[in-house]
């Protein structure tokens, strides 16, 4: 699963630490999410989507078997 977190974060000029503080996670988690090493839980995905003001589907790109 890919995501647009880094793209949207940079577009809004938000630092990784600021995003981490807003989502109540560590900066390392943001780094892992952006690099695609870690997939967010539904709760974190929801919080991230809320932060950027978009839907989960717009923030996360579901590919192949991840779709019906």
């Amino acid at each position: 699963m890919q995501n647009r977190i880094q793209e949207l974060r940079k577009a809004r000029k938000v630092t990784q630490q600021e995003l981490a503080d807003a989502l109540r996670v560590t900066r390392q988690t943001i780094i892992s999410l952006e690099s695609g090493k870690y997939n967010a839980s539904l709760t974190l995905a929801h919080k991230a989507a809320q932060f950027f003001g978009i839907t989960i589907e717009e923030l996360f790109v579901f590919e192949g078997d991840e779709n019906l």
Binding site: A20, R24, V25, T26, Q28, T29, S32, Y38, A40, S41, T43, L44
Partner: peptide, 11 residues
């Protein structure tokens, strides 16, 4: 608190 509740750390 953030370190303890961080979902990646828990995973």
């Amino acid at each position: 608190y953030i370190k303890a509740t961080d979902e990646r750390n828990q995973a």
